[in-house]
Amino acid sequence: TGEEYIAVGDFTAQQVGDLTFKKGEILLVIEKKPDGWWIAKDAKGNEGLVPRTYLEPYS
């Protein structure tokens, strides 16, 4: 389980392990790392690192 967040901007993977997403996408945050990069999963089940500055809590 995780917390749902909504993307407030588009993000394109910079390196292997990053997750590309579009503004408005709902992501499930699995782990919040202290460096500001969180592990998240998208609706298709893809998992990767995302920058927390692009996310806001979804309710």
Rank of each mutant, 00 (worst) to 15 (best):
K33D: 07
A40V: 09
F21W: 02
K23F: 07
L49M: 08
I26A: 03
D42Q: 03
R52N: 15
S59H: 15
W38D: 02
E4W: 15
S59R: 12
D35H: 07
A7E: 00
D42F: 02
S59G: 14
P34V: 14
L49K: 14
K33H: 11
Y58M: 14
E3G: 08
W38A: 02
E47K: 09
G48T: 01
L49Q: 11
Y5A: 02
P51G: 05
A7D: 00
E56A: 14
D35C: 06
A43G: 12
V8A: 07
I30A: 03
G36K: 04
K33Q: 10
K33L: 12
Y5E: 00
T53R: 13
G17Y: 05
A43Y: 11
V16S: 14
G45V: 01
I39C: 07
A7G: 05
G17L: 04
T1K: 11
I6C: 06
V50I: 05
W38M: 04
P57G: 05
W37M: 11
E31D: 12
T1W: 08
T12I: 12
D18R: 15
G2Y: 14
A43T: 12
G17W: 05
K23M: 08
T12D: 14
Q15S: 13
E4D: 07
E56F: 08
V8P: 01
A7I: 02
D10K: 03
L19Y: 01
A7N: 00
D18P: 03
K22Q: 11
D42P: 02
W38V: 04
G24E: 03
A7F: 02
E56Y: 07
K22E: 07
V16W: 10
P51T: 04
L49G: 07
G17D: 06
K32Q: 07
E3I: 10
I30F: 11
I39F: 13
L28T: 13
A13W: 04
F11T: 02
P34N: 14
T53M: 11
D42C: 03
R52W: 14
L55T: 01
W37A: 06
V16L: 14
K44A: 14
L55D: 01
A43R: 11
E56C: 09
F11W: 12
I30V: 10
L19V: 03
K32G: 02
K41I: 13
Q14R: 15
V50C: 07
G48Y: 02
N46M: 11
I30D: 02
D18I: 14
I30M: 12
P51E: 08
L27M: 06
G24P: 01
F11L: 04
D18A: 14
K41W: 07
E31V: 11
Y54K: 14
G9N: 14
N46L: 10
L19R: 01
Q14N: 12
T20F: 04
L49C: 09
N46C: 09
E25Q: 12
A40W: 01
R52D: 11
V16P: 14
V8N: 09
W37K: 10
A40E: 00
I39Y: 12
G48M: 02
D35V: 03
K32P: 04
A7Y: 02
G36W: 04
E56R: 11
K32M: 08
K22A: 08
N46D: 09
V29M: 02
K22P: 03
A40K: 00
T53S: 15
W37L: 07
I30C: 06
L28M: 12
K23Y: 08
E47I: 12
A13Y: 03
R52P: 15
T1H: 12
V29D: 00
T20H: 06
G36M: 06
A13D: 03
I26L: 09
V29L: 05
Y58G: 06
P51L: 13
W37C: 06
E3L: 11
Q14E: 10
L28Q: 09
A13R: 07
L49S: 12
K44T: 10
E4T: 14
F21R: 00
V8F: 05
D42E: 02
A43L: 12
A13T: 05
K33M: 09
W38C: 03
D18M: 15
G24L: 03
Y54C: 10
K32W: 04
K32F: 09
G24S: 04
P57H: 07
I30Y: 08
V16G: 10
